[in-house]
């Protein structure tokens, strides 16, 4: 009895990840039709939800070619749960796993086990650590954006609005996150290159309220601050709120990263200068297409970089890079 309940619960959890209309993962796929598991980070994050929707839409139009099983974890720090998901998918006998690793090192061992079991593995979004991959002697193709390049792109745009020597501040993501570190490096590349002075750099933990608190303190300690570079859009919104209460909107420029719809509003009203669109809806699709190719050819293709695009008032007015639906 207990076993039956547990099985039902597991089934519910897996189904819940994908919504009702998808081909049920527990149901056997049509013969010859591969099953692909998409394992993401937190579905509480707009970025991954968009990614999931993009993948679902792709599956719906290619339903003859493959079945899709989507799963996410509770929050981006729940590494253990993501490892369990990889193991579950392997024991379910899927043909391929497309994964956005919550941790670039901790997930390597689980991915190796999957490869050893004959499952095709494609890494998207957050790149697995090359050192650890080499140590384990495995190759996993990576499909995703270059966060450092994206961050440099938006920060370069900001630099054009500043004078060399202007004091600027960086609001980082969670200190351990690879993409957060890359974005910080990209910001530094652009600011140091243009001769700006980075007076402080602190974590806003990816959160609006936390960034609000940090930025409010930054502008009191550095009243001459000219710009705040935020590693994601939620934190950029928190920064704008801090500037608003200090009556400094417009005096201090703000940039973000991710291109969420709320930030597009703030770009239109001029309180945020720009952000980066990473085309989340296409990210998983590219990964899935790679996986399908690998299942057919059995060869490992090279890494593939996905586009990062600047979003500013100019682009929004021109109607480019519309918000993903």
């Amino acid at each position: 009895m207990k076993g039956a309940i547990a099985a039902a619960l597991v089934g519910l959890m897996i189904l819940g990840g994908c919504g009702g209309q998808d081909a049920g993962p527990a149901a056997p796929g049509a013969p010859g039709k591969p099953r692909i598991a998409l394992i993401m980070k937190s579905l509480a994050n707009e970025f991954f939800l968009t990614m999931e929707q993009g993948a679902k839409n792709h599956q719906a139009t290619h339903s003859g070619e493959y079945d899709l099983i989507c799963n996410g974890i509770k929050d981006e720090l729940d590494v253990n749960r993501q490892i369990q998901l990889v193991e579950n998918m392997v024991s379910q006998g899927v043909e391929a796993i497309v994964i956005a690793p919550a941790d670039s090192k901790a997930l390597v061992a689980a991915c190796k086990k999957a490869q050893d079991a004959g499952v095709v593995v494609v890494n998207i979004d957050n790149k697995l650590d090359e050192g650890v991959l080499a140590e384990r002697g495995i190759k996993i193709p990576f499909v995703g954006p270059d966060n450092r390049k994206g961050a440099k792109l938006v920060a370069d745009f900001l630099a054009k609005k500043l004078q060399p020597g202007d004091p600027v501040a960086i609001v980082e993501g969670v200190p351990t996150a690879f993409n957060g570190i890359q974005r910080k490096l990209g910001f530094e590349d652009a600011m140091n290159g243009a001769g700006m002075k980075i007076v402080t750099s602190q974590s806003g933990s990816w959160e609006m309220a936390k960034a609000n608190q940090v930025v409010a303190a930054m502008i009191t300690e550095h009243p001459d601050l000219k710009a705040v570079l935020c590693a994601n859009d939620s934190m950029a919104l928190g920064a704008v709120a801090a500037l608003k209460s200090a009556d400094k909107v417009g005096q201090v420029l703000v940039i973000g990263y991710d291109g969420i719809s709320a930030v597009r509003e703030r770009i239109k009203d001029g309180s945020i200068l720009g952000t980066i669109e990473q085309h989340a809806d296409q990210l998983a699709v590219f990964g899935i297409e790679y996986a399908l190719e690998m299942i057919k050819t059995k060869a490992a293709p090279a890494d593939r970089e996905t586009p990062v695009d600047l979003v500013t008032l100019e682009q929004l007015n021109a109607g480019e890079t519309p918000a993903p639906q």
């Binding site: 509480a44 994050n45 707009e46 929050d75 990816w206 959160e207 609006m208 309220a209 609000n212 939620s234 919104l237 928190g238 704008v240 709120a241 608003k244 209460s245 709320a262």
Partner: peptide, 15 residues
């Protein structure tokens, strides 16, 4: 109060 200070509702608020 938090929403009025930030001008937006963050789905991850309060963690």
């Amino acid at each position: 109060m938090q929403c009025s200070r930030l001008g937006a509702s963050d789905p991850n608020a309060g963690i």
